[in-house]
């Protein structure tokens, strides 16, 4: 972690001045308070949706017999909704310590690919800032950041490296406050599905995907990902379907015949 991660060259250049600067790895990203605030604000509507599940988590944790200290520590330190809710299923006496830790790791394996997907930007930050920002990376803040990066990239604007941590802090704040509310205050929460709130996440991720304006080359990987995710969701419990779909889609993209080898001037290469 002490090592300067900037040493490895990023795969893509988001910086318009790169033409004058032949070494892309020399391009440090700005990391400003304004960038963090922008990320925070962009993520607030999504974070409110996360808060609904934070209340649910706090409430279920109390019903399961976790103390307030245990419940809040989990939201502050683990900060991962799906694995926290799943851990409540396993929680009992004596505590299945190993299963809890192993399950948490497996449920969160999808973060490996998410972090790798952000690496072209993160590699252009000092290691401390990059690995610090990653502590706060959730599905939601990752997706909001990625859609912003795609937009910046298309407009030829230099992204702000602090956007990710800003977005992550919005989710962190709402998740922890709502955990406290659920554990301490709320007595009897209705099923979020009754208000259509279970759909909020599908809606958010759909809007983010549409906002990324997938290109024609993306169609095959996306279809393969959908098929793999649906299949896996039928067979396996938990969040395996995300990892399976991501791997299948990525593999399809890697193995599919790609035109930039055959055709001289494909349009898609103008938008890397």
């Amino acid at each position: 972690m002490r090592k300067n991660v900037q040493a490895a060259a990023p795969t893509e250049s988001y910086c318009p001045d790169m033409k004058t600067n032949p070494s892309p790895s020399a391009g440090r990203l700005p990391f400003t308070r304004a960038g963090a605030v922008a990320g925070f604000r962009a993520c607030v509507p999504v974070a409110i949706g996360v808060g609904v599940y934070g209340v649910l988590f706090g409430l279920l944790a109390r019903q399961k017999g976790l103390s307030y200290l245990e419940t809040q520590s989990m939201s502050l330190l683990v900060f991962a909704g799906a694995s926290q809710l799943i851990s409540l299923d396993l929680w009992g006496s004596p505590l299945p310590v190993f299963s809890l830790i192993a399950t948490t790791f497996i449920v969160n394996l999808r973060h490996v690919l998410m972090g790798a997907a952000l690496s072209p930007q993160l590699l252009r930050l000092p290691a401390g800032r990059a690995f610090g920002s990653l502590f706060f990376m959730t599905d939601e803040s990752w997706a909001v950041t990625l859609s912003r990066l795609t937009a910046d990239n298309r407009r030829g604007v230099m992204p702000d490296g602090a956007y990710l941590i800003g977005a992550g802090l919005a989710v962190y704040l709402f998740w922890n406050v709502s955990t406290a509310l659920g554990h301490v205050l709320v007595r009897g929460l209705d099923d979020p599905a009754r208000y259509g709130l279970d759909f909020a996440f599908t809606a958010v991720f759909t809007a983010l995907l549409v906002g990324m304006r997938p290109r024609r080359v993306d169609i095959l990987p996306l279809c393969v990902a959908v098929a793999a995710a649906l299949l896996t969701a039928r067979v396996c419990p938990g969040k395996w379907y995300i990892l399976a779909g991501a791997f299948a889609g990525g593999t399809a993209a890697a193995l599919a015949p790609h035109k930039d080898d055959d055709k001289p001037a494909p349009r898609k290469e103008t938008r890397p």
């Binding site: 690496s119 599905d139 599908t202 983010l208 990324m212 995710a229 995300i242 779909g245």
Partner: peptide, 15 residues
Amino acid sequence: FMRAIPGAILVSIIA
């Protein structure tokens, strides 16, 4: 592979 991952993750979350 890496370039396809973001869209593939999003679409898998949604599917």
